[in-house]
Amino acid sequence: MTTDQAIREAKNRWARRRRRLIGYGQWQPFTDAEPARQHVLAIKATGMGLAQIAKHTGVNRGSLDHLLYGSPPIPPAAQIRTENAQALLAYWPSLDDYEDRNIIDGTGTRRRIQALAIAGWPSKAIHQRIQVGNMQTIEKLRTRTKVTARLARVIRDFYDEVSTKTAEEYGVEGWVAARTRTYATKNQWAGPEAWDPDTIDDPDAAPEWTGACGSDRGWWMHILNDIPACPRCETAHAEWLAERRDLPAKERWRQLALAKGAASSRGANLAHDARELMRISGLNHEQVAERLGVTRQHLYQELTRHPQTETELAA
């Protein structure tokens, strides 16, 4: 659905609702402008201009100016047309909504470049594939906080294309990929398997290294799989230990052993159950993850960490 079609559909929905409200005597043509004003300011903070917001919401540019700035000496609007408020509050820009020159948040781009390094992709190889800027441009993206929308889209599309396989499978020399992984691991960057595609651009999201990050079990899974513990798991384990600080030493060690055992067996059991479910039902990975109550990337992690045993292969 194009932007124009989406705007027309939203306006038609609002027109139908307005007719119903008028019929019930509940029609209020104006509403408090503050929620819409704060929402528009939040969108502007992402790098999008008012002309673009007007284009994507169908709200007149002049109305947006009056909402934010007023017309001195007239202050910003205290009220706004209800249909305009609805259109503004219902909109949040996607990456494809920005113009190429817009400067936007670099969180998603930075995470994708770092994840590709874990997969073995050095900056030079990425530059050779996407042909944007130079090798130093790609190198700087590993830490950059702001990028152009055009570059963010190029990196997103390349990441979506190659992130499910290792760099070697795309022709990167093994020793180069290994050196890149060592550097990325030393910096504790998260690989593609740790990021949910739906949240990788969210600055508030955190990588899911184990499928249980933020818990004591997650801390043990870090240790057992030789993954540096993330801050969330470090905090959770410290809290777990603090809660048991006053227990007798024997009981505390017993509970530690139980926690470690539960974490070590859970991943293998999950991988076994997933393969069995796929074999019996024919479900794909995403459907099996939903059935087992885990995320898609967590299931992928455990299948990778726990390959099929000889017994399973012989069955």
Rank of each mutant, 00 (worst) to 15 (best):
V59S: 08
G70Y: 06
K186R: 13
Q128K: 12
T164Q: 12
M278L: 08
Q52R: 14
D201S: 07
Y24F: 15
K11H: 13
R305G: 08
A236L: 09
A274D: 07
D202T: 09
S94D: 12
K140P: 00
P197T: 06
I223A: 13
A85I: 08
A117W: 01
D96H: 11
M1H: 07
Y91Q: 07
T148A: 00
A257Y: 00
N102I: 00
W209Y: 15
A314L: 11
T137C: 09
T145M: 07
L258G: 07
R81T: 01
A152P: 03
A236E: 07
T46I: 01
A206F: 12
E208G: 14
R110G: 03
D157P: 01
A149Y: 01
R8E: 15
W209R: 13
I53L: 02
I104D: 07
E310T: 11
A149H: 01
G214F: 10
A125C: 03
E193A: 14
G293S: 11
R16D: 14
E251W: 00
D160K: 06
C233M: 12
I280S: 04
D198M: 13
T148K: 03
W209D: 10
E99Q: 13
L41S: 04
W189Q: 03
A33L: 10
Y170G: 00
I104Q: 05
I227F: 02
L224Q: 11
W240Q: 06
N12W: 10
A268T: 15
I223K: 14
L313A: 05
I74D: 10
P72A: 06
R266V: 10
K260D: 04
L224A: 13
G171I: 05
T311P: 00
R181I: 04
I7T: 04
R217S: 15
W189F: 10
W175R: 09
T180Y: 02
H237Y: 15
W14F: 15
D157S: 06
R181Y: 02
E83V: 11
T235D: 14
E312A: 08
S264R: 15
L64R: 03
E208W: 08
P76Y: 03
V147D: 06
V40E: 06
V147G: 05
W189I: 03
T57W: 10
A85D: 09
P72Y: 05
Y69N: 11
E290M: 13
A85T: 07
A229V: 15
T182V: 11
G133C: 04
V147H: 01
R217E: 14
Q308W: 05
I155H: 01
D32W: 05
